[in-house]
Write a protein that binds this DNA or RNA. Sequence first.
DNA 1: GTGAAAGCGCTAACAC
DNA 2: GTGTTAGCGCTTTCAC
Lengths: 344, 344
Amino acid sequence: MATISDVARVAGVSVSTVSYAINGSRPISEATRLRVFAAMDALSYQPHAMARGLASKRSRILGLHFPMEDRGLGFTELEFVVGAADTAFAGGYHLILSPLMSEQPRELLQLTQQGLVDGVILMEVLQDDPRVEALRALRFPFAMIGRCADNRGIDYVDTDFESTMSDAVCYLAALGHTSLAYITQSHQTFDSGYGPVVRTCATFTQTLLQHDIAGAIYFCGASAADGNAILRTIFEEQPAVTALLAMNDRALVGIVQGLDDLGYSLPADISLVTLVSSMRIGELFRPPVTTFAVPSSEMARLGVELLIDRLENPAHPIRQLLIPCTMVDQGSAAAPAHMHVVRV
Amino acid sequence: MATISDVARVAGVSVSTVSYAINGSRPISEATRLRVFAAMDALSYQPHAMARGLASKRSRILGLHFPMEDRGLGFTELEFVVGAADTAFAGGYHLILSPLMSEQPRELLQLTQQGLVDGVILMEVLQDDPRVEALRALRFPFAMIGRCADNRGIDYVDTDFESTMSDAVCYLAALGHTSLAYITQSHQTFDSGYGPVVRTCATFTQTLLQHDIAGAIYFCGASAADGNAILRTIFEEQPAVTALLAMNDRALVGIVQGLDDLGYSLPADISLVTLVSSMRIGELFRPPVTTFAVPSSEMARLGVELLIDRLENPAHPIRQLLIPCTMVDQGSAAAPAHMHVVRV
DNA sequence: GTGAAAGCGCTAACAC
DNA sequence: GTGTTAGCGCTTTCAC
C-alpha cells in the first residue's frame, strides 16, 4: 500500500524522479536510480494501476471480444484465450474477456469508451462485421484474429483457409480421389458471412476445377446428429464419393460414428480429413482422423502482438498475417479402393 | 470523451449531483435525475473506469487465477472461463485472466497489490495452496472454485467429489458389479494434494468398504497412451474387474480405444463411466460413455457470485457450496456378464 | 540530472 | 435535495 511519494521520501528524491526511474522516460543518474529501487523494494512498492492509467491515459489492459454462438466451445477457443492472456501478460498487459452473446457493437463501445482498455482483439470475425465499423468510426485501436471482406488498414492474423483447403484437396487428389464431399458448417453460418466457411467453400470449388475432379459442398449443423445425418444425404446425392473433408468439429463425431454404422471403415472404404481443427481433436477418434490443425496458440500470440505493437508504434505499417494449417497425418485418408461398392 | 463535468454543465447541475445520480448513492429529485440522464446520453457519456476506480478505490475488475498445468485444456475449463466472464459482466464487473504457469503466489500478489482487481477467483485449488496463504495474509478478498484442506473463512464452490464418487460406485454396485477399477490422474497430481484426486480416491475406498466390494485405484497420466497402457496393468492385477470408473478426460480416449483393441465391448464385456467430465466429453465416443457431468458453467457462475457478494457485503456469512455431478446415462454401463472371460 | 506542481476524471466528505 | 472541494496516486510539462 505504499505510494510513490513514500518511495520518494525514503529515497530522498522527488516524486517525479521516482516516476522517471520506473518508466525510464528520462535519464536518471545511476546513484539515484539505485536509491530509488532500494526504497521501492524496502517498501515493496507496487505502482497503482488505476492511478497510472488515469494519469497516463493508458490502462495497459487489452480487451478480448469473444462472441459466443452456437458454434460453441471447442478446444481451439480455449487455446486462443489462454494464448492471448499469456502473450498479453508477457508484454506487460492484462487481458479482459468480453464473452458477449451478441455481435452487437453496443457493449463493445461501452468497453472502449470507458477507458478501460487500450485496444481490442476481435475473435470470430464476420466478413462484414458491425464491430469493425464501430471501432473504425471511433478510431479505436484493434486487431483481429480472423478477417473481413474489406480489411484495409486493419492488423489481423487469420488461418490461411485458402491454402489449407487447397492443400487438403490436393492431398486427396494426389491420393487418387476424384469425387469429394466437403462437409462445412451450417447454411446460416455461411449466409451470415462467416469467413472460414465462405472462404473454404470458394476455394474448395476452385480447386476442384483446377484438378478437374468432382465434388460438392454439404452444409451441416453443429451436432453429432447433424454429422450423422449429413452422411445419408451425401451418399444419396453423390454415390461415387470416396473422400470426405470436414470443417465442423462438433459434427465430426457423428460423421465418424455414422461411417462406422454404415459399415465403412477408414481409410479402406472412404477417406476422411478434418480441417482447421485443434491438433487434439483428430486423436479423439478411432481410427484417429488426419487433421489440418489450426495453430491456435500461435495465432492468439500473434494477434496480441499485433495489437500491442500498434498501440506502442502507431506509425508501423499494417500487418496482415495468414497462417496455414499443418497436416497431421493420422492415417484416415488413403488411396481410394478400385472398386467402390455403392450402398443404399 | 465527455467527462462528468461536461454532463454537469449541460444538465445545469454540479458534478457531485451527476455522480450521485449515476451511483444512486444519495437521493436525487426526479426532475434533476431526468435532466442528468438526458445530458448523459446527449453527450453519450461513459464514466471513465480508471478515474472512477482511483477515486472510489474499487476497480470493479475481478481476477481469475488459472494455473495451467499438464492436466491441460479441456472443454470444462473454457466453460468455466466463459461462465465466469459472463457472470462478472452481468454483475457490473469485468474479468481479467491470469493464466499463470505457476502456482507461485508472486505474480498473484503483484496483481492484487497494483489495485487492479477488487478480488480474485482461484481455480485449480490445491489441498494446501500457497495462493490461499498469500491472499489470506493480505486479507485480500477471494473466492475459490475448488477447495483446500482447511477452508475456514473462505467462500468456495466445488464439485461434490465425495457424493459424485459415491453415487458412481453405488450405481455400479447396484448394477451388480463387485470388482471395480478407478482410473484417476497421475500419482504426482495426487501427491501434490490436488483435491479432486485426493477426495475421490478416499471416497472410492470408503464406498467399496460400505458395499463390501473389491476395487483398486490406478494412477494414470494425462494422455491417450497412458490410458491405453493402464488397461494392461488393470487386467493383470485385477483380472476379475467388471467395471471401470475414470476421472481423467485426457486418458479416456486411450481407455475406450484400448478396450476396443482388447476385444471388449461396452457395456457387454465391461462397464465404463467417466466422472467429473464435461457433459460433452462422453458423447465423443463410440459407444458414448456414461458421464457424471460437472456443471462447469454453474460453478463458475456461483464462484463469481460468491466473490461479488463478498465484495459488496463483507459482513455476509461465509458460503461453501458443493455441487454434485449429474449422471448422464449414455449406456456404457450395464450389469456384468455372468461369465467374464479373462484374457491375457 | 532533478524538482514542483498541474492535472487525469471521478467519489465522497462536508457544507448548506 | 444540491453544491463545493479535497483528494485518489500517478504522469508529465515546465522550470532550474
